[in-house]
Design a binder for these strands. Sequence first.
DNA 1: CGACCCATGTAAGCAGTTACATGATTGC
DNA 2: GCAATCATGTAACTGCTTACATGGGTCG
Lengths: 193, 193
Amino acid sequence: MAKENKTKYAILGVLSLKPASGYDIKKFCDETIAHFWQENYGHIYPVLKQLEEEQWVEKKTEISEGKLKHVYSITARGRERLVEWLSVQPEVTKPRYEFLLKMFFSKDIPAQMVIQRLNESKILCQSILKQYESMEQKIKMGLANKTCLESGWAYRYSTLRYGILDLKAKIAWCDETIALINRVSNQDEEEGL
Amino acid sequence: MAKENKTKYAILGVLSLKPASGYDIKKFCDETIAHFWQENYGHIYPVLKQLEEEQWVEKKTEISEGKLKHVYSITARGRERLVEWLSVQPEVTKPRYEFLLKMFFSKDIPAQMVIQRLNESKILCQSILKQYESMEQKIKMGLANKTCLESGWAYRYSTLRYGILDLKAKIAWCDETIALINRVSNQDEEEGL
DNA sequence: CGACCCATGTAAGCAGTTACATGATTGC
DNA sequence: GCAATCATGTAACTGCTTACATGGGTCG
């Protein structure tokens, strides 16, 4: 019943790269996979406890510089589960796009307001796209220097590429939608005269 | 605290078009906005009750052909709330893409399996794209016949266009990612020799 | 001395999903 | 007679979010 807990596998994935604490996991999510995945402490810590009970991960408590740190590492059993999960074709995610919901019902607000919102969205997308593209450049330079040729770079790179293609599509959509609404609302005015 | 209930506004939006029962609302979601929004009875009915208490909607009980039907219509107050919600720039949705999460951590499964999954995704996207494009054709024909020139068609049309551009981007991404993984795994083999 | 990062966790609570329960009508 | 569609709801449950609580270290 209800949805499957995907946080489990996200944590398992992060730990498959190297052992980490709850804090480290959160940081990794924010710094590296934030464009398609988010986690928060309120979910990470309880799920880590759960994973420990299921023996998918192991806890080691370290004390360095007076600071307490719980470092978790993936077990053999955990690695099996991870591979099992990786091997299953993911279900199609059916996200709920609030901005499209608003767009769909927007006839009751002024067209100029809708266009303004679209422009704001477009500008935001463009700025994120710039960031992604500079990340892409860095990866490409690294490749040229052969400094990041460990196995798996291509998978990580592809998720960035997804972000880039997705943003470009969104920007194109904003452009064509602005043009469409302008055309239609001008037409309405002419008919109104 | 917690997330805002967006179902409220989705229902309000549907009722702003015309009065409907819970059943009708569900049907509308499935038939018309399913590509970016889903609802289920387990949420619709309780939220309708809530909206009635807040006097955003009104209930009228009809009995036709022995069947009980609760028809809800939006009130003036409800329309105000809807316009208020429409006027606010939606937050950027940060969806969790399970397929990208898997992709990111895929180095532990065979490259050929990843490619197969990508191919399956691509084929699925293509078939949905075909459906969307035939819907688009119908709308365009309707426009030519001037049969659907009520205000607001452009907004609904734009949501379909979003679906189309999005799917095209996904298909392009599948293609380039398959090519990338093929290139990298061939390279690995050569180095292995 | 205040801001910021490191570090760990709990509690409350809503949103949303799935399964269950019920029954009439229509059409093959 | 059986499946599908119309029609309304409830119950149980989980996933995830947000706010709260706490405390040490570092740097300007």
